[in-house]
Write a protein that binds this DNA or RNA. Structure first.
Ligand SMILES: [Mn+2]
Ligand SMILES: [Mn+2]
Ligand SMILES: [Mn+2]
Ligand SMILES: [Mn+2]
Lengths: 218, 218
DNA sequence: AATTAAATTTAGACAAATCTAAAAATTTGT
DNA sequence: ACAAATTTTTAGATTTGTCTAAATTTAATT
């Protein structure tokens, strides 16, 4: 598999192409910052290799082989992200770019040894689950902070937006995974929330609240 | 820089193109298992980028920029090899192939952090020196085992042939870096040597002796 | 149902990196 | 010094992945 092929497979997975749902060439092109015509070309190539099902004018979805491939790449990406944070003191806003390169390194032994070195982590630095060697995928029970009842609280377990700007904003406001967040009030005007986290009270916009995942306290 | 360009630069360096010596396209092609015509094309491209000096029909040599680039790639390659051996329990015959991929990962922070994690190693698992961040290169004082006087002894500090077959042969015969080797006799007929290493005596062919580096004992 | 708009595919082009076969330059041998 | 052998370069083709512009299909609107 070439690097380009791997990137397409991964993108299709992230757009929901694991079910039998067909993903449009336009959606893929937009996500990958490329042109729809390029996606069409690649769709044919991937279909030839039995990695996707391609229906002309409708879109593509991953085959079983495609899903297996996607999970393997995602596993590598997320394990490398954990490695960078835990072993090399990278911050969670620095890891994605490097992991985009490292995920294409071909060595099964390397991935498995990194997994072992990290003591088989279940989640990456952004709270996303790491598929096991055999491709199992444990999606966490979570919901957007914006959907919590008021008042109530939960543990911050993930981010939806993983851009460096958002992550650095969270750092600045002492919002980190593992912390308890209590929603105190919702402002009707703009859906902003008053929350308490790590002993502090602060006001966060709806845009923030719709990009933070929490796990409701049991 | 593309991956192909980096591989050419590295090969030219290893063939001695760091001095003003011109390396022939044929030599490069053979080393890289490609065709001389491909090398000619690349030579022009690298010359345009000021990485090599290219004299038609004569060959190429690295510019200062080319040397700097080569050292950076070699540094990464060797640091990754140390990482694989020291942190992930790879054997010295397994690391080269993976390091060939890892050396192209673009992240200065990553290399420097790996360097730090390994406590700034000076040599890779095959005894080759690791250039520093600033490009310094401390070639060790060493000589081929075949060139030791008889009788005398030295410390095994490196291998010339780094192929997996040779390295596994060395493992099988308990020959490893750091061990003292004493040359007891030389057989005139085939230049084979009787040596003592790790308490054992064994007979090694001239081909083995010309691929092992030792440091004479002071 | 026909027209318009939007999405998708095709056709043709391009850059990177490679190859083969033929031409040109250099080196070798007498 | 000159022919032969070797090395190197050129010319033209191929593959991968991309693009633009035009054609086609599908979806939306009157
Ligand atoms: Mn990521
Ligand atoms: Mn992540
Ligand atoms: Mn190596
Ligand atoms: Mn090495």
């Amino acid at each position: 598999m070439t690097r380009a092929e791997e990137n397409y497979i991964k993108t299709i997975f992230h757009l929901g192409g694991n079910a039998s749902q067909l993903i449009s060439t336009n959606a893929i092109a937009e996500q990958m910052e490329t042109k729809p015509s390029s996606v069409t070309d690649m769709a044919k190539k991937l279909a030839d290799k039995n990695l996707v099902k391609y229906v002309r004018y409708q879109g593509v979805s991953l085959t079983d082989l495609g899903i297996k491939t996607a999970l393997s790449i995602i596993r590598k990406h997320r394990l490398w992200e954990v490695f960078l944070v835990k072993k090399l003191d990278f911050t969670w806003d620095e890891v994605h770019e490097v992991a985009e390169q490292l995920e294409h390194i071909k060595s099964e032994k390397l991935v498995d040894k990194i997994d072992e070195l990290l003591d088989f982590p279940k989640y990456d630095p952004h709270g996303d689950p790491i598929p096991t060697k055999s491709g199992e995928f444990l999606e966490r029970d979570k919901q957007l902070l914006s959907e919590l009842e008021i008042p109530s609280s939960g543990i911050c377990v993930g981010v939806k937006d993983t851009s460096a700007t958002f992550l650095k904003f969270l750092d600045k406001n002492h919002i980190a995974l593992g912390h308890e967040i209590t929603v105190l009030e919702k402002e009707d005007f703009d859906d902003s929330l008053k929350i308490r986290i790590a002993g502090r009270e602060l006001q966060i916009s709806n845009q923030i609240a719709t990009n933070l995942y929490v796990k409701k306290e049991s």
